[in-house]
Simulated scan of single mutants.
Amino acid sequence: MKILIDKYGRKIDYLRISVTDRCNLRCIYCIPQFGVLQTREEDMLSIKEIVSFVKVASSHGIKKIKITGGEPLLRKDIVSLVSCIKEIDSITDISMTTNGVLLKKYASDLKKAGLKKLNISLDSLCSDKYKEITKIGKLKDVLTGIETAMELEFPQVKVNTVIIRDINFDEILDFVRFSTETGITVKFIEYMPTKNSLDGYAKKFVSADEMRFLCSEAYSLLPAVVDGNGPAKYYVIPGTNGTIGFISPLSCKFCSDCNRIRLTSDGRLLSCLYAQECVDIKDSLRKGPDIDEVTKLLYRAIVSKPASHSLTVEDKQMDFCSMMRIGG
């Protein structure tokens, strides 16, 4: 099997696939309240087209797949997609990031189809605050989804929590307790800037170091290794089943170890979350696909992968629509 190596010597073996830019929540830091122009149905990649690309990518070293959105469970064919990817022998890991609202409905079928890992986005454990953040979400739906996943004994369930000062900063230790009580790993993520970030973004930013310091004042933290595809630094809490992680895309960039590329729902390859350029592969996939042409486009995306993103707390380069379509 060939191996994808970018010009900085990084081995690329991880593909994140955004299967839709639609979502059933309206989180304040993700979707602008005035609405967005969504991708037309006919412009979205079909299951067949996605699987065709995964087959090409897997023959060149891609082994791990993360399905994202928007909200991936809004795609009615999502279970079939997981099942088709599972049939590709060289794919060793299939995971999904979801807001969990529809998880109770789909969890059993997803597990049977071959989904191994779940990352569930949850930014508050308070019903009122969760509603404030998501605008239309109900906390009980997500908690029921998490409970269902645990009952089904998914190999791995993690919670992703974006921390924003003056919004959910005061819940950090509540999430740590949630981890100790449930055994679910909680990952704290730095709030990323966009063109339409909340007013006063810099004042709302909380670094991973500050989060970790707060946690260490209340709990003993021991560094740990946790299976996963991402850059989180993990810690276990002795005497409990709790594990927490911290992801620091701004305060301590992990670009030198980045092993991923991204495919959007409308067929664009991005080598970096904040890439200014993309490689459009939709037409090539719809031609049959033309495997040689798709392969060339894949390598073009790898070659374009930057050494590092240049984003800082003061920057606001990405717009909401881009973040929704790329899937974070």
Rank of each mutant, 00 (worst) to 15 (best):
L45M: 11
Y106F: 15
R40T: 04
N119P: 13
I67S: 05
K111C: 11
T92M: 04
K76Q: 08
V51S: 03
T97L: 05
K105V: 09
H60L: 09
E171F: 13
I167F: 14
L115A: 02
P155R: 01
R40K: 14
L73H: 04
T68E: 07
V142M: 00
L125S: 11
I67G: 04
V157L: 02
K86F: 12
C84A: 15
K63Y: 01
E87H: 13
I50N: 00
I62Y: 04
L125Q: 03
K131T: 07
D141M: 05
L122A: 01
Y106P: 08
K112C: 08
I172Y: 04
G61W: 14
K140E: 10
K138G: 04
D174F: 04
L74I: 10
D123R: 07
L73Q: 02
G100N: 01
G69V: 00
I120F: 00
L115C: 05
T161E: 04
K66A: 15
M150I: 13
Q156M: 13
K135M: 10
T134I: 05
V159T: 03
D170N: 15
I78Q: 09
R177A: 06
Y106S: 11
S95C: 11
S46R: 13
P155C: 05
L81N: 10
N168E: 09
A107V: 05
S108E: 14
L110Y: 05
L102E: 09
F175S: 03
E171T: 11
V51N: 03
G114T: 06
I62V: 10
T161Y: 01
C84F: 09
I136H: 06
S52V: 07
P72Q: 11
E153W: 02
C126D: 15
K112Q: 14
I88A: 07
S127K: 15
S108H: 11
I94K: 09
Y106M: 10
D128H: 08
S90D: 13
V79N: 05
L152Q: 07
V79Y: 06
D93C: 02
N160K: 04
K117G: 01
S46Q: 06
I85P: 01
I91C: 10
I94Y: 06
K135F: 04
I65S: 00
C126E: 15
M150W: 06
I50H: 00
G61Y: 12
V54M: 07
I120S: 04
I85N: 02
